[in-house]
Design a protein around this nucleic acid. Structure first.
Lengths: 210, 210, 210, 210
DNA sequence: CATGAATGAGATTTCATTCAT
DNA sequence: TATGAATGAAATCTCATTCAT
């Protein structure tokens, strides 16, 4: 509000830069491995600002997690898979989940770390829990229409299916570093990612077929 | 031979206690969150002994990871799934993977943390990488026999299938804390675990059916 | 500008106090014997500041060594012995070296310790190596003029002479504690120091005389 | 005394090996830098033996220092410089001191470290202090005869001369690592050592000449 | 006499957070 | 709003010495 001389004061921008820096740092090093100093440096901001805006490291962690999670869910909702025909909808949902996570390591990294803590921080979140219901409703819709069309098997639980759709790609992406080491294979090349995606589609569609 | 709780001057026993304590601590808090002091206390050992036997925290981490991983692989090998009939073999492999990880949180916790570091430590391991080949051979054998019997689809990649078998349960178990929070459901009860396992079997067998 | 003992939030002052404390501690106890805690306490500073400003103990050591060494060389250069007449110049150089080291134990203590490590740290220094050339040029000038005047012998190597000038006093000062013990004499009294200086002048001038 | 089975028990040999190992370790790393573990390892002995034979690290230090010092003094006495003609005696004394220290870094390293502590340990020694008197008497004899022969200047203090003879080489050897760095010259080559010795002889003989 | 596992105290270094400016 | 120096607590790691065998 005060316009003092040459000093630029852009609180919202500073805040945004801190959040972006935090997500990057947390993604690379986890909650315990991340350094507040490093986040400030990456953000080109003063450390004090982190405390000003986010309270402390743990609150910043939760905010980062919420942000990353909501971004994914928001984009997912925007795709409107529910309006596609059933097989196409499931396939696109699979594809979206896989490609999104493959391109953005943040979500998996943060979720894994949060699960190490048994969702201690996420449990406090007021933003995240209500995000899932439309997703399950959408899957349920696709399944019902697919069954009605005689192409999907009946009796599939939408939540289990969603966990399978997410998990069948998540494990591959999340664990690709140890898997590559263990199998002595390169699971990270674009070709390898496409092969994985094709397999995933085969599995889920093969399972669902009537 | 002697069954006394904490025995002194028993180097092998001290070493074993430290390793067990380290695995427990790393499982709960990760590499960065774990405290060397706490590991020593849990082991009923002097901190100095940790450095004597394992060098430093990071080497202790690698050793813990290797130990946990090998224990699982060893038990897996011992099951001899390759000798069962094809459908039974795949089903048992799925079941084994799921139940084993459900009962022992160490493996998932350590693997997730190791993947955060992009397998930095595991890459140095001389014990782990060669463990997988018999596993893939076994899966390949099951697939071939299943195809020959006309019950499995042809053209399934053993490695992809293995990753699916592992991943379809791994994600559920690894992320059950955030998933429970997000879905507002209890995914940890024995009944929930059994439901998940049944779904997983449905998915994989549904996919594989000819 | 403010002349208060321990002033807070004065980074340059804190830095200076740490350096002074480090030099004192290193002088008394050597690199390995010195304690970082003790340096912080002497400096009236937080231990953390040492790492902030100097990186670690070894870098602080190098910085201390460089500082002490440069201080001596700087003062030596300021004396402008090269402008005196030859005999006077050599005599003053001898005297300066001896009195300077006698009054300030830092230089000898730090150099001895650094030589124990075979100059491991000094080798990394970017500040120190180039300081000597004007010194040798100055000695060479004195020698030449002395020879021209017929009072000095010809053929004296400036570097050897400098090492002799420094060493003839250095050994006495550096080893005065063991020498006193061994000879059962007091080599530290002002009178003893003057006697030594007189002898040193006799030796060097006696040697140089044509 | 007891000859039990195959176990070799050679107390005197163990003791000797520990002492040699200690001298080597102290020479390389000083009193504070030396590690008791390392001394035991170098000696191929058990750490406990060090305490058995020498009490503790500090007593082992003193014993090492005394041993090294006496070895030098003993060899020096054995040379019987006092029986040579005066100029030759002084020259040989110089040469002996220089070559002896050049070949055996122990003495200088240990003395420097002991002087850092202001001879704290040596002061307790009962073996060392009485060693010097014959040395001074010998030098005094050489000087007297030289003066009588008209080749040496009169009035030279034997102790000062001895300190000069020792110091003029000691500084060069002790500080050769930092001097080499500072002068950018190699002071360690055999040729460089010979040049230094020649200069030292010139200085002392030049000084002494009548 | 000999071993080497074990110990406690303390070393260096790190970190989230606060405070003076 | 912004800075970055300062802090205290605690982390990892080290060491001389002792003790059970």
């Amino acid at each position: 509000m005060r316009a003092k001389g040459v000093v630029k004061r852009q609180p919202e921008d500073t805040r945004r830069r801190i959040l972006a820096a935090a997500i990057a740092e947390f993604t690379e090093k986890g909650l315990e491995g991340a350094r507040v100093d490093e986040i400030a440096a990456r953000a080109g901001a003063n450390k004090r600002m982190i405390y000003q805006y986010f309270g402390n490291k743990e609150e910043l962690w939760l905010f980062s997690l919420e942000t990353v999670y909501e971004a994914m869910r928001g984009e997912e909702r925007g795709q409107e898979f529910g309006k596609l025909d059933p097989a196409e909808g499931i396939r696109k949902l699979l594809e979206f989940n896989f490609r999104y996570s493959a391109e953005r390591p943040e979500l998996i990294a943060l979720l894994n770390n949060e699960n190490l803590h048994r969702a201690r921080y996420l449990k406090r979140s007021k933003r995240v829990p209500m995000l899932h219901s439309p997703l399950l409703a959408m899957i349920e819709g696709l399944l019902k229409r697919g069954v009605a069309q005689g192409i999907f098997r009946p009796g599939v639980d939408p939540m289990q299916l969603y966990i399978t759709i997410a998990g069948i790609g998540y494990f591959y992406l999340s664990n690709r570093w140890t898997l590559s080491t263990i199998f002595g294979a390169d699971l990270e090349s674009p070709a390898a990612l496409e092969r994985r995606l094709a397999h995933m589609v085969d599995v889920v569609m093969g399972y669902l077929r009537a």
